[in-house]
Design a protein around this nucleic acid. Structure first.
Lengths: 149, 149
DNA sequence: CTCAATGCAAACCGTTTGCATGCTC
DNA sequence: GAGCATGCAAACGGTTTGCATTGAG
């Protein structure tokens, strides 16, 4: 994505256009993986961008509030992950060995959600789905090591 | 559940039968709601059981490891919740207003999971699903207050 | 008697916050 | 120039850990 469109996305949200915000969005938009605040901080520092961890957290909060980014909490609950919000509904496939997280762009829950609303009298506004298992690479590694039960 | 069967469940797992463990299992088995470590700690204290928060955490760890309890991390990621493990596959319906968590004992994902395994070459060992929304009571309250957007 | 479990206090670690300074609009 | 954003350091809060003591098997 061009810097210009990143900047206009920030401004349209009513936020101020600052270097840390542009850099964070740019990084996440280009990243294949979800990243933690720490990941982002280190990655930017390593690329010569000087900024503070608390700025990263504050930026992530603002950008998540404004739907430019998504915040994701996986099962372990240790630390939050962030991704650029492409506005495409999706879920995740998480490898329990290497911890890689792959997005899945199909969702089996639409009909089920409607049924559930009727059954429970809830208004359902969203859902979260994750699949846990072992990716192809780790299956191979673990088979060789015989550590996969 | 009777104390006796709680104790035998502990012993069968190879753990030692101690008061904190029996009390924690007993409490969670009878609770309608998921509880945090802090909840458990306070509830037991209020019932005259003297024990330490770190004992609660250590017990919860051991009991979760041994599948007597389940540990659940919701979207906010603030604190872990625990439930007695009835060995029935289920998911949760979470009210974003009152934070109540209701188990749902149906699951729409079995077929989908198989498809996904083929498509992605993952071995899938489990999944997690939560629905977020507003429960009947909170819908009413919020409608009156006009604070539900 | 041995080893696992507990109590207590201190550490941990991801995240948040208060305050002075800087920068965007 | 006004008000939001940042840097820095300190606080927070849930959870974990080291160590001496207790208690189950």
């Amino acid at each position: 994505m061009e810097k210009k469109s990143i900047i206009s996305r920030i401004i349209e949200s009513g936020l101020k256009n600052t270097k840390p915000r542009v850099n964070i969005i740019d990084l996440l938009e280009q990243s294949d993986n979800l990243m933690t605040a720490q990941d982002i901080y280190e990655s930017l520092r390593n690329n010569g961008v000087s900024l503070n961890l608390s700025t990263v957290y504050r930026s992530l909060d603002k950008l998540t509030e404004n739907n430019i980014l998504n915040k994701v909490m996986l099962e372990d609950g240790k630390q939050a992950l962030y991704e650029y919000n492409h506005d495409i509904h999706h879920h995740f496939l998480v490898c329990k060995s290497c911890n890689k997280v792959k997005p899945i762009y199909s969702c089996p829950l639409d009909k089920y959600e409607k049924e559930l609303e009727k059954k429970t009298n809830f208004i359902i506004t969203g859902h979260r789905v994750e699949f846990y298992g072992y990716c192809k690479e780790c299956q191979r590694k673990l088979k060789n090591n015989k550590t996969l039960i």
